[in-house]
Amino acid sequence: MKTIRTLALALLAVAILSSSSMAQGWGNLKFKFTYGGEYTAPPKIAVTRDAAVCGKLGLIDESLVVNPENKGISNVIVFYRDRTPAKIHPSYNDSTEAPVVVDNIKCRFEPRVAAVWTKRKIDFKNSDPVGHNVKVDTFFNPVINPILPAGAKISQSYSMEERLPTKISCSIHPWMTGWIVVRNDPYIGVSDKDGNLEIKNLPAGEFEFQIWQEKAGYIQQVTQDGSTVEWARGRVKIKIEDGKTTDFGTIVIGADQFK
């Protein structure tokens, strides 16, 4: 009898131990963004500069990129915007050594949207045979506009958080547009080509997030599980559950949001 009780206690202890190793105050957040309208091919860009190089690339307007196969929307941004400064998970500390890289390649910015935690540097480089410049019109941080000759790279750091995504452009090639999201924490997600977005290791608790896409601005109205949801100014309070992945499921953004 005593043995059984001891065993039961031991099992309980194991159970407690294992559950505490699961839940340590962090959770993940997942989204899938899809387009709620008919797919139409994006318009082509009229290449007016360096046509010999950029004119052959079949450049298209990337302000809204929808995957024709599954209607996933790329480059939707979700970022932590709670008034409480975010607790940073230790796994992010390793990333501070490596810079975020934005490449000028094939007469466009790659990636189009870059997430910049103020602890990380950002490198702008040029892999094209033509010269570029990168004009970054930040609101609070000093504005930059360095020229980037073919093969060049410049390194930049930002000390202050920006409230909004910041546009980057190239004056030489006016069609080139990109965005950087400069925040005081690494909790910035950008959706991939299928519309999937995941932010890992968020602190558990209820926090406010903001959801933005360059053509729509703040995503204010969406369809979630078949019903219409209003997000004032793209803001949504989300409860991050301890040790779990909070899956927001498929969020359908109507075509009218992009007009």
Binding site: N133, K135, V143, N145, P146, I147, L148, P149
Partner: peptide, 13 residues
């Protein structure tokens, strides 16, 4: 250095 507020970039290279 470039010219702020305009398309004129600064050349550090």
């Amino acid at each position: 250095g470039g010219i702020e507020g305009t398309p004129m970039p600064g050349n550090t290279k």
